[in-house]
């Protein structure tokens, strides 16, 4: 409850404490802290990026979840690296989903296309290669988000999903791919 009060205060001074709570190994408190950081929005991003915990993967997963929800492109490098390379699957899946929710309009227009291409390529590789079903599931969610925001990628994303579907061993991931396909507006 103390964390919820802090989270609702929307006070910049609370950011370091909220970030500290992510490492308490207490899911209830961490959920509240993430909500607080998301409410503070882009103001929390630089401090979050500076304080990513290299030793505690639980805390890293929660921090990535907060960055994913905020969608600030300053977190893009962090999310790309976490999604494809972190050893903890909870971090990879949070980051992969977050890559679908980047607010691209906050990037200078000349940087947008390159950044989006890298995001698309990274998510496609994760879908093809990650050994954990839940990370592949999250990559589908990330690709869906990218396609919904950026219509010019829709066709390529649908092709990535279509070609992966036949080689996917997990029913839950196949289902999520089918649902993503059904949700993309039809192209004609």
């Amino acid at each position: 409850q103390a964390v919820w009060n802090l989270a609702n205060a929307q006070d910049l001074a609370a950011i370091p404490t909220l970030i500290e709570v992510l490492g308490y190994n207490n899911p209830g408190a961490a959920v509240a802290a993430v909500e607080g950081l998301v409410k503070l929005g882009e103001r929390a991003v630089p401090i979050l990026l500076e304080n990513i915990d290299g030793y505690d993967y639980g805390a890293r997963a929660w921090a990535n979840r907060a960055l994913a929800r905020i969608g600030d492109p300053r977190a893009l490098e962090m999310l790309l690296e976490a999604a494809s390379q972190d050893f903890a699957l909870s971090v990879r899946r949070a980051a992969a989903k977050g890559l679908g929710g980047i607010q691209w309009e906050k990037l200078p227009p000349e940087e947008q296309q390159t950044a989006q291409e890298r995001t698309l390529t990274t998510l496609a590789q994760i879908l093809a290669k990650d050994e954990e079903w839940v990370v592949r599931y999250a990559a589908v969610v990330g690709l869906e988000g990218l396609g919904q925001q950026q219509g010019q990628f829709r066709e390529r994303i649908l092709e990535i999903l279509r070609s992966h579907l036949s080689q996917e061993s997990e029913l839950a991931v196949r289902a999520r791919i089918q649902w993503a396909q059904q949700k993309q507006p039809t192209l004609n």
Partner: peptide, 20 residues
């Protein structure tokens, strides 16, 4: 070819998305 999802299946996937 195309799966017809029940409302339950869709709801469960929404919940899963929210927990990633």
């Amino acid at each position: 070819e195309t799966w017809e999802f029940s409302p339950e299946s869709v709801h469960i996937m929404q919940l899963m998305d929210g927990l990633l």
